[in-house]
Amino acid sequence: MTQPKLSVSGLTKTFARGSERIRVLDGIDLEIPENEFVSLVGTSGCGKSTLLSIVAGLEDHDTGSVLVDGQPVEGPGRDRGVVFQSYTLFPWLTARQNVEFALRAAGLKGADLRDRALEHLALVGLERFADAHPNQLSGGMKQRVAIARALSYRPKILLMDEPFGALDALTRHHMQELLTRVWERHRLTVLFITHDVEEAVYLSDRVAVMSNQPGRIKEIVPITIDRPRPYDITSTPEFMALHRRVLASIREESIRIAQMDDAIG
């Protein structure tokens, strides 16, 4: 078997809360082969962002391992592009300069910088807004620039934490199509967090459902729908069956959590 692009095994993470330590992640195992699109869903607070931060190298962990191409992750790196849930474009730079900022960090210089930046803004359909500052862009446009920035230095893995969380349904739909196109063209490996089950099923090869308290991978649902996927695929019985299955899995979790809270409260 070929080596997975990203491999997480036996990962645990605890946080101090007051005098006790709470176990947020408990024995996470997840392997993502190259060019696979995996979504992570689960109830709020189950540890999705924490897992993504650890994979990004922005947060350390207690036990277990995170391997990229078989090599342990030691801190953040340009082999993994991150799109954060919050808006992280630098407001003092234009859209193009924001992308150039990343490219410069990656060692590009001169005319290359500008060309590569514009090329990636074109990729997300924003070349006309290259010279606009973030305060002149809508929420969806900002996230598109952030995606362009994360892709510009050609990371092999893209980590996205609810990047479309703040967007309306229509813009969201555009962004999903765009992301699918980019993912196909760049042969990316994607770990994608979302609250939106339909989004997860539509985009992914596999959907990983997390359980809460402690956070574990409860179930991995393979999405056996052919690509390319037109958007009206969401109303086919096949899609709806998968959608229901993932939703039921999450709902089970939230009911269990509610009962646990009741028992405590």
Binding site: A56, P76, G77, G81, S86, T88, W92, F101, A106
Partner: peptide
């Protein structure tokens, strides 16, 4: 200054000093 601004710098493998001078200070200016 948002934490995630610093995290962007980290994911770009900038050095601490560069993050300070090119991200934190301009953001706080």
């Amino acid at each position: 200054v948002p934490w995630d601004f610093v995290n962007v710098g980290r994911t770009l493998e900038l050095k601490e000093r560069e993050i300070l001078a090119r991200i934190v200070v301009p953001a706080a200016l």
